[in-house]
Lab assay of single mutants.
Amino acid sequence: TYTWNTKEEAKQAFKELLKEKRVPSNASWEQAMKMIINDPRYSALAKLSEKKQAFNAYKVQTE
């Protein structure tokens, strides 16, 4: 089980997950979700809006 003390740690864990699963920077949210949804870190960020925000930040960083 994973635990995160801060929102920032949770966001980092979520981005690490995207990186580890090699989600391409041109992937849509739907494509990315299919690649990461079974990992416990997918739940790091509770709100869908937070997940999408972190995903978009990840995409910008990896382009």
Rank of each mutant, 00 (worst) to 15 (best):
K47A: 12
A32N: 01
K34A: 11
I36V: 05
K15N: 15
T6P: 03
N26W: 14
A44I: 04
E9R: 02
Q31T: 12
T62P: 09
V60N: 14
L17M: 12
I36S: 01
T62S: 12
I37L: 10
S28Y: 04
E63K: 10
A27P: 01
N56A: 13
K21N: 07
Y42D: 01
Q53L: 10
N56I: 13
W29R: 00
K52H: 07
E63I: 14
K59R: 11
K11Q: 15
P24N: 04
N38L: 10
E20K: 02
V60P: 03
S43M: 14
N38E: 09
A13E: 04
A10I: 03
E20V: 05
L48W: 06
L48R: 05
I36P: 00
F14Y: 02
Y58H: 05
K15W: 15
Y42M: 03
K21T: 07
E8G: 08
K59N: 04
A54L: 07
A54R: 02
K7Q: 10
K21G: 03
Q12R: 09
N38C: 13
R22C: 11
K51M: 07
K47R: 09
N5L: 13
A27L: 08
Y2G: 15
Q31E: 10
V23D: 01
W4N: 06
T3N: 08
L45Y: 03
K15H: 15
A13H: 07
P24M: 04
E20Q: 08
A27N: 04
N5I: 12
N38H: 12
K19N: 10
A10R: 15
K7C: 09
E50A: 06
Q53E: 14
S43P: 05
N26Y: 10
Q53I: 09
L48H: 05
L18G: 00
S49E: 12
T3F: 12
N5Q: 13
V60K: 14
Y42K: 01
Q61K: 08
L45A: 02
D39Y: 01
A10S: 06
F55K: 01
E63T: 12
R41D: 01
E20R: 03
S49Q: 08
F14P: 00
K19R: 12
L17Q: 00
T1E: 15
I36N: 00
A13R: 06
K21D: 01
A27G: 05
Y58G: 02
W4C: 12
T3G: 08
Y58S: 02
N26L: 06
